[in-house]
Structure formats: structure tokens, C-alpha cells
Amino acid sequence: MMLSNDYAKDRGKAPVSNYAHAVVAGAVLDRHLEEQRLFFPVGILGFPESRRYRLEIYRPEDGSESPFLTLKCLDQDLSFALIYPRSLGLDYRVPVNDEMLDALSATSAAQLSALLIVTLRERIKDISVNLQGPLVINSASSLGLQLVVEHYPLRYPLIQRSAE
């Protein structure tokens, strides 16, 4: 994966636009489907060996609705709480290039969805959402990747308190 656009320029080739596409969060799970099996070819950062997962809608114990999902690893005892960007009311865009589309067996960014990892913490005001490392998923191919979008925050508070 090329890091520097200037590399090509310095080699006398025309610079390539790395990011010709954008991803806008779509819906991965059809609400009628309880779960989707996903495969992350290179795992997620820090867990490179954990590749097979099951994505499910999270149902609170009292039977109410929640915007959360769970991503449960089938290779080891590991699981993540996830949320859709639109549940946070965010206009969230993940730039993707052709290499990322290829890696997800997608032909266009429209086939992809973004899901965000939620870090649960003791105090609710500390619960945050990782906007910098979204999980980008192609539900048709059941492939996923964690991408890095540096200009977004790593810890976006789940609860945005208005001024009191």
C-alpha cells in the first residue's frame, strides 16, 4: 500500500490520486437478517490473527431497541461493540482507493458500509467511538477491513452533552 503520493512524482511519473472514491455509511445488516458472517483478511489493528467474525444487532436485555451491534470473533474470545455513523448523526466519509476496493472485492464504494468501534468505559461520558479506524465492510463479499482516516478523532464522545 503506497504511503506517499510524492513517491510517484519523484520517480517521474504523474501523481496518482489515491482517493478517487468516498464511502458513505450504508446499511450492512438487513434488519430481517439476524447475523452476517464476515472475514477480515488482515484482521483488525492489534489483532491480526482474528479474522472470522459474526456481526449481530445488539438487543438489550429488556428487549428495547438500540443502535448498537456486536462483532464477535469466531477465532478467539474477542468481541467489539459497534455503531453506524448515521446513528451519531454524523456526515461521515471514508475515502477509499482502488486497492481497498480490490481487497474487499468491491467495484464501487457504493457497495461498502462503515461501522465504528465503540469503546465502553466505566463513566458514560468516557464512552467513545473510534472515527479514525472505521471498519469498512462489503456485505456482498462478506469481507471487511479496518481503515485509517487520520483527520477524524480517535475518541469521539458517544454522548454529546449540550451546554447546561
Binding site: 483488525i44 489493528l45 492489534g46 489483532f47 456486536t70 464477535k72 474470545d77 474477542l78 468481541s79 467489539f80 461493540a81 468501534i117 465503540v118 469503546t119 465502553l120 468505559r121 473510534n130 479514525q132 479506524g133 479496518q146 485509517v148 480517535l154 475518541r155
Partner: peptide
């Protein structure tokens, strides 16, 4: 990001 993933990762008590 790795550190944040690790903080977010839960085990069976998820």
C-alpha cells in the same frame, strides 16, 4: 489505533 482497539475489545462478558 491498536491501543484503542485493545481498550474496546471485550471477551465473553461483552
Amino acid at each position: 489505533i491498536r491501543e484503542e482497539n485493545q481498550a474496546a475489545a471485550k471477551a465473553h462478558e461483552q
